[in-house]
Nucleic acid binder design. Structure first.
Lengths: 204, 204
DNA sequence: GACGAATTAGGACAGTTGTCCTAATCTTGC
DNA sequence: GCAAGATTAGGACAACTGTCCTAATTCGTC
């Protein structure tokens, strides 16, 4: 606790502020005030605002990686692990209603700013995408694992965006339940490909 | 064409710039340059930046209203009208990949800024929500029309966010097809409530 | 206890922002 | 062709931005 370096404190505060206020709308002064540090001191730890952003993205990547690792170990099966992912929406619903999804809103903002770290932020999505893909593959859906992963990611994003816009808590619960149903139908292999094409079972 | 007032030109340019660069990241100078007008002249038409934002949101509301009206008249049935909505993602896929959804990204940004016009921007969503709700009701889904409308809205938002982050064109097509399948199953009344509860047919 | 390095504080700096003023120009009705 | 209003141009203004410098302080090591 007390062994956190000033640098860590800065990254933490910046992370929180970037999420709540957005990257551009957060100034050096805002972060300095939050950490209770002089503005000048700042320069010693980070030369530019972009450097802080990169550090924040890096910290989020680390955090996401260890979260996924935890779920991979804890979870009994792939379906339960995917449920852990879906559960983020419920666990963080208050913050999501207030500020949206930390990943989605950051990527959107950086895209608008034409910021160089846009690709780095997208890695946050890629991390989740890759992990989800693996879980769906383990669920016996190797053939369309990536499609399913992206589908789930997209639905989560949409839920966060609308929950934020409407400040609607019940909506999150509603949609989370639908995603649970959908996930169950994925494991069955029942729905999700409703068109009657000549279906080809995955060989493995 | 030539009868557009300077005010209209400003709103148009601001609309485009707010979409591409974000509201905060767009300065008076940016808009003035785009309209080829002196910065001072600006003040005569809009006292503050917030006023421009309100005018832009108003213009978008008008545009959305007339678009929905057109669809309501044109469309053969409610299903086709909903398909018109889904088709926006395909028609605007290039812009969406570049800048996301104009509505979703604006609402997200204003939420972060804590901007007073946040509620006004959300009306853009409400417009679509209400219209979609009516179409689903006409489709025989009065009971859960609003849930279905929000669901479709959320999925569109998610698609836009991820398409923007990954710059993935195929993903949009993929998800649009899935939404088409889903819509068909809505009209059937077949899926969408996969849980085997004691199902109760809507009386109407 | 002293020395060198790491850390901190305070402020300077030029550039940009939104806002606002004033004077010139154009348009319109008579 | 002229007066009155609308529109435009150009720039002033204070506040804030990210960046950077220098001097003071703290810290670990001998």
């Amino acid at each position: 606790m007390s062994d956190k370096t000033t640098r860590d404190l800065i990254v933490e505060a910046a992370d929180r502020l970037f999420y709540r206020q957005g990257y551009e709308h957060t100034s050096f002064a805002d972060i300095a005030d939050a950490v209770r540090i002089s503005r000048g001191n700042f320069y010693h730890h980070f030369k530019t605002k972009d450097e802080i952003l990169d550090a924040v993205i890096g910290a989020r990547l680390d955090g996401t990686r260890s979260m996924l690792e935890r779920w991979t170990i804890e979870g009994k099966g792939p379906a339960d692990r995917i449920r852990s992912f879906i559960h983020i929406l419920v666990a963080n619903q208050t913050e999501i209603m207030r500020h949206g999804c930390p990943v989605g809103t950051l990527c959107s903002e950086l895209a608008k700013l034409g910021h160089a770290s846009q690709a780095e932020a997208t890695k946050l999505f890629t991390l989740l995408r890759t992990w989800l893909r693996r879980q769906f593959a383990l669920l016996g859906r190797e053939a369309d694992a990536d499609t399913l992963a992206m589908h789930l990611l997209a639905r989560s994003q949409g839920i966060a965006t609308l929950a934020n816009a409407f400040h609607d808590e019940k909506f999150i619960k509603q949609e989370v339940k639908l995603m649970g149903d959908w996930l169950r139908s994925c494991a069955d292999g029942s729905v999700s490909q409703p068109k009657r094409t000549n279906r080809r079972r995955a060989s493995g």
